[in-house]
């Protein structure tokens, strides 16, 4: 899922200087699960902002809302009236949700209430860790189901590097070395011979390094589009 962390309330308040009608809008999907931008967090942020407004006489009027998935236009359309009524929208969704609102309502000012941090998983209550870089070329079948691209600080394809020490990463001694984890996993599976296979250099053009990516599934298209999958402007 997409993991985010809410910005400091003071930072968000600073962005909102001069605004009056503010919509704080969250998302019930990833950021709700990582407890950064769901219903409770929307209430908490609104309340904290109103403390500032009441104390400093800013006269803010706060509206709260949480949509099912802020990255999908059909869900955002459900709060069309709330968005149109607001001077400013603070999005507690990830960068995708915030940009969806900003693209659908280009005349409206959208402010990010959280920092979209990484693609990760919940490890335990209150702990999330990065496990995917969305690099566009998954190879975890060769590494025991462990992604060296996201879990190794150097994204090494053939590790470990010389900085691995006692199973930990030299960049952060609290972080497990991905390649030690890969070794242990392959050993458990009786596939240690794979450690000697040289993995080919990665084609980074399939990652964000190759520029903004887009997927067009022609079999799913309903509205006509040109061969490049040009976006349909509504």
């Amino acid at each position: 899922m997409i993991i985010g962390e809410r910005k400091k309330v003071s930072e968000i308040a600073e962005m909102l200087a001069g605004k009056k009608k503010i919509l704080v809008s969250g998302c019930r999907t990833c950021v709700a699960i990582c407890m950064a931008g769901g219903e409770k967090e929307v209430s908490e942020l609104s309340s904290a902002l109103m403390l500032i407004s009441d104390r400093d006489g800013l006269g803010w009027k706060m509206e709260e809302n949480v949509v099912e998935r802020q990255c999908e236009k059909e869900w955002v359309r459900e709060i069309d009236d709330k968005i149109r009524n607001a001077d400013a929208i603070v999005s507690l969704a990830c960068g995708l949700g915030a940009q969806t609102v900003a693209d659908m309502y280009p005349e409206k000012e959208v402010y990010p209430g959280l920092n979209t941090t990484f693609l990760g998983v919940p490890e335990e209550q209150g702990v999330w860790s990065e496990k995917c870089l969305a690099c566009g070329e998954c190879i975890i079948h060769t590494t025991g189901g462990i992604c060296p691209v996201s879990r190794c600080a150097k994204s090494m394809r053939n590790g470990p590097c010389g900085g691995s020490s006692n199973g930990k990463c030299e960049v952060d001694p609290d972080t497990d070395c991905a390649w030690v984890a890969i070794y242990d996993r392959l050993k458990l599976q009786g596939r240690l011979d794979m450690m000697t296979d040289v993995i080919e250099p990665k084609d980074w053009s399939k990652s964000h390094s190759g520029g903004r990516r887009k997927i067009v599934r022609k079999d799913l298209l309903i509205q006509p589009t040109d061969s490049s999958g040009k976006e349909v402007v509504e």
Binding site: E44, L51, D54
Partner: peptide
């Protein structure tokens, strides 16, 4: 007790 309960009490 949710965080909003604490903030709203102060407010």
């Amino acid at each position: 007790v949710e965080t909003v309960h604490l903030l709203e009490a102060i407010r």
